[in-house]
Design a protein around this nucleic acid. Structure first.
Length: 363
RNA sequence: GCCCUGAUAGUGUAGUUGGCCUAUCAUGUGACCCUGUCACGGUCACGACCCGGGUUCGAAUCCCGGUCAGGGCG
């Protein structure tokens, strides 16, 4: 259930309620594909104040396997994370050449690196998701890489709608179900898809198939043509976006939910997000720098370690260092979203956006 | 003092019966990248034949001298 709280232009705040509690939107979800992220897990997600994370139903069904969740009482108890957990459906894995074996009218055949291949179809997704017991299920969609022909996208949209509808028809219980719109970078296909998904009465709507190589202007365009057709009283989620500047651009256009590995991956590669810009910790100027990554940051890493020490850990490719850096970026993302919400409440979103973007470049 | 061995990017190395060396690989440094699975990742750039002479059409490679380092003998 979603309650709209406040609007500031197209930007808005709201409350998403689930069986595991609520979270105020707009929010960003760290990724925990296999009920753990790279170098971070539940205690870290909690410590960075993440009210929601996203895992992947396909990967979880392979390893640890569906039975684990039945026997362990669901994913929350299994990984000791009490807040909201989304599960992605596996549709995005269509973009991975090493995972996608075949696309049929009924679903997708995905390679299982450690066993029997998985035919992901609505029935299977709903069954898995129910046993995992996540809070929000992303319905099965059909994703194509950027740059295919319009005909191919048209076909993919059609499949996507069939699968998504099937998910909706099969769905019961307290878990929320979100539908995903597609359409590549074609405005009319995006509109068609948004209308069709909106008509299926989901608990929330996602815009999928973006952030996969298209220019940011096209990404924004696709959001802009989709939004008018997505019920404003339901949460809107752009899947896969993690660049702060794109998140703020999408919030401005009416998006409520985001997820991405981007902040985590960038952290591991030494790119730290701060409110005064993007810091490349690999630079030698930080070698003897006693300051924390960000003076005003209250994350564990900033409260505890100097840039010099974190740079040293980064340079020696230490796993512990990668964890500290990841914690910082994830904390930053939560603070970033918090500031976005506060500014929407105060009606100062535009000013905040401009101020943020002015500082958000490499330093 | 004599003999032997060695000397190639910041570091560690490949190449040493002369030509395919515009010199290998790793690391380092710098730049860019990373988006609903994310490897401790990717792309690009920078950076060296100890010095001097000789042989040769041609030398990192062969010869002579020097310097330095390691080892052996006094």
């Amino acid at each position: 259930m979603f309650t709209l709280l406040k609007e500031d232009g197209q930007a808005r705040t709201g409350i998403l309620q689930t069986k595991s509690g609520e979270a105020e939107t707009p929010f960003f979800m760290p990724v925990a594909t296999k009920a753990v992220g790279r170098f971070v897990s539940a205690e870290d997600y909690i410590a960075v104040h993440a009210k929601a994370i996203i895992a992947n139903a396909f990967f979880l069904s392979i390893n640890p396997c569906v039975e684990t969740f039945e026997k362990m009482g669901g994913i929350h108890k299994f990984m000791q994370y009490p807040n909201i957990i989304f599960t992605d459906c596996g549709g995005f894995q269509m973009l991975r050449e090493n995972l996608l074996l075949e696309t049929t009218n009924n679903g997708i055949l995905l390679k299982n690196p450690s066993g029997k291949d998985v035919f992901m179809r609505p029935e299977k997704l709903l069954d898995i998701s129910k046993k995992i017991d996540s809070d929000v299920i992303m319905a099965l969609d059909c994703v194509l890489p950027y740059g295919r022909s319009k005909e191919e996208y048209r076909e993919a949209v059609q499949k996507s709608h069939q699968w998504t509808k099937k998910c909706k028809d099969l769905h019961t219980g307290r878990q929320l179900l979100f539908g995903i719109t597609q359409g590549g970078t074609f405005e009319d296909l995006r509109e068609t898809s948004a209308k069709a998904i909106n008509a299926m009465d989901f608990d929330g709507h996602a815009i999928g198939g973006v952030g996969i190589g298209e220019p940011t202007e096209l990404l924004y365009k696709m959001v802009e043509v989709s939004i008018p057709h997505l019920d404003k009283n339901k949460p809107r989620y752009v899947m896969g976006l993690g660049k702060p500047e794109q998140i703020i651009g999408c919030v401005e256009r009416g998006i409520d939910i985001f997820d991405s590995i981007y902040p985590q991956k960038n952290a591991r590669h030494g790119m730290l997000f701060t409110f005064s810009g993007i810091m490349d910790l690999g630079q030698s100027k930080y070698k003897f720098d006693k300051k924390p990554i960000e003076e005003s940051c209250l994350c564990f890493s900033c409260k505890t370690f100097s840039r010099a020490y974190l740079r040293y850990l980064f340079k020696k490719d230490d796993a512990v260092g990668k964890r500290y850096l990841t914690i910082h970026n994830l904390y930053f993302m939560q603070e970033f979203m918090k500031k976005i919400r506060e500014n929407i409440h105060q009606g100062t979103f535009q000013e905040f956006k401009e101020e943020f973007l002015k500082a958000h470049k490499k330093i």
